[in-house]
């Protein structure tokens, strides 16, 4: 239990080398060891999506990923988008359309939307809704989120330069499958 492993990874463009317990969740590592508290934890069983990050170019649940699985990976969190004074176009679209209320699901929603728009730059409304269906928001009823993502897609500037390093990395198995919420539509 006290056995530690050394991991090296890149988070938002900065390199880190840290000792971690093998059981340590990537979400806890980001939040507690690196102080990147923008990534939130909502369920710890892969349904709510609040902890969504970009791991080697794909969205992933940091609550279902161990920190040791991110050894050698490129990680992007919400802190790697825009800043308070210079929001990323997607963040600006969220603000313009009032796509957030309490803000707790927002970082995960942004990362999921970023992943969606990188892979499907011109999604239909249905594709946006399906594409974000792995992220729960309890405040907005999703209406304004869908509008924001549509606006960001239309602006076409969502996939910023900061994402290229991550996209260039080969895809990897994160070992962090979201649980299927079959009962929703059975």
């Amino acid at each position: 239990m006290s056995e530690q492993r050394t991991i090296r990874l890149t988070v938002n463009g900065a390199s880190f080398e840290r000792e971690v317990e093998p059981r340590r969740l990537l979400a806890d590592f980001l939040r507690e060891d690196l102080g990147l508290t923008g990534t939130h934890i909502g369920c710890e069983h892969g349904v709510c999506g609040a902890c969504t990050i970009i791991l080697d170019g794909d969205s992933a649940r940091s609550c279902l990923t161990l920190a040791v699985q991110a050894d050698g990976a490129q990680v992007q969190t919400v802190e790697g988008l825009g800043t308070v004074d210079a929001l990323h176009p997607l963040q600006r679209a969220f603000r313009e359309h009032h796509a957030l209320q309490c803000g707790f699901c927002t970082p995960g929603m942004l990362m999921a939307a970023l992943d969606l728009l990188r892979k499907h730059p011109s999604p239909t409304e249905r594709e946006i809704r399906e594409g974000l269906s792995g992220n729960l928001c309890r405040c907005t009823g999703y209406e304004h989120i869908v509008r924001a993502v549509r606006t960001a897609a239309a602006a076409g500037e969502t996939v910023g330069a900061e994402t290229e390093t991550a996209s260039a990395a080969p895809p990897r198995e994160a070992g962090a499958g979201a649980q299927s919420r079959g009962s929703a539509r059975e």
């Binding site: 499907h120 011109s122 594709e127 399906e130 594409g131 269906s133 962090a176 979201a178 299927s180």
Partner: peptide, 21 residues
Amino acid sequence: ANQTNSGGRSESGSGPTRQSK
């Protein structure tokens, strides 16, 4: 109402589905 599909992929059935990353 509000079908504002921008076209392109809506009928192809190859759109994104529930994420399972």
